[in-house]
């Protein structure tokens, strides 16, 4: 299998961590089969990102740059990716399983008539393609999926692979000639609305403090925000809290929300219904705080604490502050 291409996502001049994870995985696979790895960055004036990307090791950095590509364009970014694949005859294309990666990957699959495995947690090279592991049924089962053919595409689940810096030769940098004609685009990004309070996205956080119906109302979340601030984490919610209008849907964890796998998930006033469970069961460590000693969440929380959230959370925040002050 010749040539691995990794699409490296940047937004507002910042490279996505999950793309670096994909690049590291691409490098590992390339090492096994003696192939080259190229990283494609699409954007406007993104030369300064070459160094950030090079640290993770690749043979070539391809830059597709144009004023009109400053922000995401489904058609524009797709065309750049198509061009990059064609140019170097890549046989495996990896993307991070982000909103952008999930949007682009199937388009490439259609255009090259190549199989795509989404949200992979492992990838191995096979004789005529790749074999991946991926969660199905919202993580209740794992599927071993083979993608065959002269070209394969995979999106990688964020947080499932390690991003590792390496020492090595500096990559060659190439400008990828792409024809960009925004007047032909039929779906055009007009603007990106940002929440009033900027926070780390639930799908990208390594520490999540999640609140459910037990928080009693939107004000209840203040103590969770405080704990999140001390831990460098972000606040999420159960569907009960989202449906009640206390938190935005973007914060929802579970079957109809986000499926997350942080290092630490603290569930506060959440009963642990199966539809919530499937969204967070792959967290490395789960802590549950609930006043009901027989709440289902205690069956699978690594550490459970029985009691009133409104007493326990402030005490927990204080205790962690003390720990960090001791250094």
């Amino acid at each position: 299998m010749a040539g691995i291409l990794v699409f490296v996502e940047q937004r507002q001049g910042k490279v996505k961590q999950s793309s670096l994870e994909a690049l590291s995985e691409g490098r590992r696979l390339a090492g096994k089969i003696g192939a080259n790895v190229s990283a494609l960055i699409v954007g406007h004036q993104v030369e300064n990102l070459v160094n950030d990307v090079a640290k993770y090791g690749c043979n070539t950095v391809l830059l597709a740059q144009h004023e009109a590509l400053a922000n995401y364009s489904p058609e524009g970014y797709r065309d750049a990716l198509l061009e990059a694949v064609k140019e170097e005859q890549h046989r495996l294309v990896l993307l991070a399983g982000t909103a952008m990666g999930k949007d682009l990957a199937p388009r490439i699959s259609a255009r090259f008539d190549a199989g795509l495995a989404t949200d992979c947690t492992t990838v191995e090279i096979a004789t005529d393609g790749i074999i991946t592991t991926r969660p199905v049924f919202a993580g209740k089962l794992l599927q071993k999926l083979k993608v065959s053919g002269s070209m394969a595409i995979a999106t990688l689940k964020p947080n499932a692979f390690k991003a590792e810096q390496v020492n090595g030769n500096a990559p060659t940098v190439e400008q990828l000639p792409v024809r960009v004609d925004p007047s032909k685009w039929r779906a055009v990004l007009k603007t990106t609305l940002e929440p009033e309070v900027k926070k780390q996205d639930v799908s990208e956080a390594s520490i999540i403090i999640s609140g459910g119906r037990g928080m009693r109302g939107p004000e209840g979340y203040r103590i969770l925000e405080e704990l999140a601030a001390v831990l460098g984490g972000t606040v999420a919610a159960s569907r009960a809290a989202v449906d009640a209008g206390w938190r935005p849907h973007a914060d929802q964890v579970g079957q109809t929300g986000k499926v997350v796998s942080p290092n630490l998930y603290i569930a506060c006033g959440i009963s642990g219904a199966v539809q919530h469970q499937v969204g967070m069961i792959n967290s490395k460590v789960i802590v549950a705080i609930n006043k009901d000693p027989v709440a289902p969440i205690f069956k699978f929380a690594d550490y459970g604490l029985v009691g009133d959230i409104f007493e326990i959370i402030p005490a927990l925040t204080n205790e962690i502050k003390k720990l960090y002050n001791r250094g």
Binding site: D113, A114, G115, L116, A117, I131, P135, V136, G139, K140, L141, L142, Q143, K144, L145, K146, V147, S148, G149, I281, N282, I286, A288, I297, F298, K299, F300, A301, D302, G304
Partner: peptide, 16 residues
Amino acid sequence: KTESLALSYPPARPQG
């Protein structure tokens, strides 16, 4: 282009 080779259960979490 794709073929499901096997399904399995994710590793069980230790009892809470």
